[in-house]
């Protein structure tokens, strides 16, 4: 049984000092993942634990005209009534993460920084071009969520960094499509989520994203660009071309079951033709 030293930092600088001083440190928000994944009576943690929930800055939600940002220690329940989760379909996605007893404790930072990253909320955040603000003792930097992980969902973030905030540009969402595919998504299941967001401005599509994420993540930038600037409703010809592009790129991955996924992308495009 490995006993750990537990710290309750009250400020971000205090936490950063701790991170730079301790080599083997685990940041803990709600700790639901640890409790869930360890079936043994006693829990096991690295030598040092730092609890992030006492830091007010990591709990704050700020909204400006262009952007919303959440502190990484906000619980999933705290996000239920803010963008983008005030939209019924996004709210349903949030509810699929876990029951409310888990959502009341689990943090958004923990959800995104879990080792296998492409969990339920990841594709929605990737669609929204979410940016993650990391802080270290000497510097802070911002990374687009898409570039945080490698193709297998493993983090590229440095070990001495703290995920402090999640920033999401505000977008008027006119079409949203969220579909869960396959079996269990958490942890390491064979399921996935397909999320697509579209924004329309003066009868033309000015934003389109389609992200598929499960054990791996997929996005076709060229197909997205083909739709952006097209008139709305989408013409059947463009829809066919785009579907063909997705068919080709999905088959190239040699990972996704294109026969299963293409009809779903077809539904997304059909929705844009109305």
């Amino acid at each position: 049984m490995n006993l750990s030293e537990i710290h309750f930092p009250q400020t971000i600088p205090e936490l950063l000092t701790l991170i730079s001083r301790e080599k083997n440190i685990q940041l803990i928000g709600g700790a639901t993942t640890f409790g869930y994944l360890q079936p043994t009576r006693y829990l096991s943690f690295p030598n040092t634990i730092a609890i992030t929930s006492r830091i007010p800055e990591l709990h704050a939600i700020h909204k400006t005209e262009r952007m919303i940002s959440y502190g990484a220690a906000c619980t999933l329940s705290e996000l239920e009534h803010v963008y983008p989760f005030e939209h019924p379909q996004s709210a349903s996605l949030l509810r699929t993460v876990a029951t409310s007893a888990v959502r009341n404790v689990a943090t958004i930072g923990g959800h995104l920084m879990y080792d296998c990253s492409f969990l339920s909320l990841w594709p929605l955040f990737a669609c929204l071009d979410a940016e993650l603000e990391f802080r270290a003792a000497s510097q802070s930097h911002i990374k687009n969520i898409w570039y945080l992980v490698d193709e297998n969902g493993r983090h590229c973030a440095a070990g001495n960094e703290l995920l402090a905030r999640i920033r999401i540009p505000l977008l008027s969402i006119d079409h949203i499509y969220i579909k869960r595919i396959g079996g269990n998504i958490f942890p390491g299941g064979d399921g996935a989520h397909l999320v697509s967001l579209t924004s329309v401005d003066r009868r033309s599509i000015n934003f389109f994203r389609l992200v598929l994420a499960g054990a791996r993540a997929f996005r076709d930038f060229e197909a997205e660009q083909r739709i952006i600037s097209a008139s709305h409703p989408l013409s059947p010809k463009i829809a066919q071309t785009v579907l063909h592009m997705y068919a080709e790129s999905l088959r190239k991955t040699n990972f996704w079951n294109a026969d299963l996924i293409l009809p779903l992308i077809g539904q997304v495009l059909e929705d844009l033709q109305r």
């Binding site: 700790a31 409790g35 869930y36 829990l43 007893a101 009341n104």
Partner: peptide, 23 residues
């Protein structure tokens, strides 16, 4: 011990939580 039976439910600051998965 993984929050699946619900018999460990408590209210934490007035909100539901599973005490078996919580350190």
């Amino acid at each position: 011990l993984d929050g699946h039976c619900g018999k460990c439910l408590i209210l934490l600051d007035g909100k539901s939580a599973y005490s078996c998965i919580m350190p």
